[in-house]
Amino acid sequence: MALTQHEFAFVSGLVRREAAIVLEAGKEYLVEARLLPLARRTGTVTVSEFVARAQRERVIADQIVDALTTNETSWLRDREPFTAFTDSVVPDLAERRGPQHKLRIWSAACSSGQEPYSLAMLLEESVRTGRYEILATDISTEMIERAKAGRYSQLEVNRGLPVPMLVRYFDRVGTEWQVAEALRRNVSFQKVNLAAPLPQLAPFDVVFLRNVLIYFDLETKRSVLRRIRSLMRPDGWLFLGAAETTIGIDDGFERVVAGRASAYRPRAATTAPVGATRKG
């Protein structure tokens, strides 16, 4: 569905003001191509509808500027949550659960797959991990298909992926790089809309839900957090984006410091000493 002249004028005016980028007439197809995945991700059906929302909601307008000014997702760009994951969370869980436990991780808005594969690489490198499985979900079927294929362009593998990981976990396939089969085996993909009732999933030890809540209004945020909490182990860990929090939204979570990052844990868990949690 094509953008109207009026909608395109709004978008081009927005990016000109915010990012000094000139979108000339005739670039409607580019705007649509860039915004469609984003619109889908926020549960908006058409780009037109998404642009209409941007005229009322500042957050959406910011997303449009971002989408039209940056291209690729980075792998380990926000290092703090990943460092906290390997240095604090994985050792904590290994101690609580014992070596035989299979860690279950949920990457709850996996987009093109960089986050779940980054987590898989970190778990492979972590000597304290025995077995693990990662569920990666996204609202977009297109993104799920992309992520499942695990194929990335040269530009994408340049983005925040340490080169030892590139040579260890990727194979060159034509002009692209593909995540090695051994790693892909540990990651499964499923289409999930976080804003709707969730499918029955086995409880998770760790959930990554970064830069998703910002897309939702307060009520939706609250119900998303509540549903996610119901799918977490009582002593599990939740990671949000740097600009996001559960505080003032869902009291069932408590903020804890993990390394230089903040994480969130179901409230009862933080008072229980290590080793005292029930067997899973």
Partner: peptide
């Protein structure tokens, strides 16, 4: 890439690259 790492390079950026790629690798 393996050869360069074996020789002692610490990181590796493949051309073409965006400015963010250089910045993120330096951050790593």
């Amino acid at each position: 890439i393996v050869r360069a790492l074996a020789a002692g390079a610490h990181e590796y950026v493949i051309k073409p690259f965006t400015p963010e790629a250089i910045a993120e690798k330096l951050a790593l």
